[in-house]
């Protein structure tokens, strides 16, 4: 965020580094059911991000003492592959960032999955980021939502996620890696679209209250597009 001395211009002639308009999403492609072992799975390309999501279960909670007698528990693992970024090879295994993202992703699905149906059991959600270019947690949640929907595990709604932020004084949607690194603010949001409930919200940088309003409006509008793509991907499997 705002780091580095050789800060590139993020907006030139009213366009962003990759030619997008301020409120334009990167191209998103979603494929359902490509991992045969999983109960549900999805592969998602979001700009240069490539993300796999899979869901297993419900199955008996292991180890037993973590089981909840009233509802299913969710285990979630978000991970970036060591070869996923254009920069250096990164250490594999969960770092602190990944642990936090896993936690907030888990909480998104604790909201929408009907956990009461499966007391004592666990549902596992895996998000593997194979290639990263900014906005991987949003991509991961969007993919995992499709994976869960394709599994038959009952859920109240299919959430989507996307980030908004600020470059210079412009509010921008769906930050790519360069924008993520040098923007004035980044605010990933996950939403259950049926009632427009905010399930995940993080932000850092600098936003006024008016800018937050503008950014959230952009997110809700983009949500219509993402929801439609999730729907088409799920329907494509049965037609």
């Amino acid at each position: 965020m705002g780091g580095g001395k050789n800060k590139p211009e993020l907006i030139v002639g009213g366009k962003r580094t990759d030619g997008r308009a301020m409120d334009e999403l990167r191209p998103i492609k979603i494929q359902v059911g490509i991992l045969k072992n999983a109960e549900g799975s999805a592969y998602l390309e979001w700009g240069n991000n490539k993300v796999l999501a899979a869901v297993y279960g419900p199955k008996e909670a292991q180890p037993k003492h973590i089981a909840n007698p009233d509802r299913a528990i969710i285990k979630c693992r978000y991970q970036m592959a060591p070869f996923s970024s254009l920069e250096e090879h990164s250490r594999s295994g969960p770092n602190r960032r990944a642990i936090e993202i896993s936690k907030v992703t888990k909480e998104v699905f604790e909201n929408v999955i009907m956990l009461d149906n499966f007391p004592g059991s666990e549902i596992d959600i895996f998000v593997e980021v194979l290639q990263s270019d900014g906005g991987t947690r949003a991509a991961g949640i969007t993919a995992a939502a499709v994976a869960v929907a394709s599994s038959g595990i009952p859920m109240r709604d299919i959430p989507y996620a996307v980030s908004a932020g600020k470059a210079g004084e412009e509010i921008i949607l769906d930050l790519n890696k360069i924008e993520d690194n040098y923007s004035e603010a980044d605010m990933p949001i996950a939403v259950a679209p049926r009632n427009n409930d905010i399930l995940l919200l993080q932000m850092d940088g600098s936003l006024t209250s008016e800018q937050i309003r503008k950014a959230t409006d952009m997110v809700i509008k983009a949500g219509e597009t993402i929801t439609k793509l999730q729907r088409e991907a799920l329907e494509a499997r049965y037609s």
Partner: peptide, 8 residues
């Protein structure tokens, strides 16, 4: 007949 998704 139409396809219905969770939340519909």
């Amino acid at each position: 007949m139409k396809i219905v998704l969770p939340g519909d």
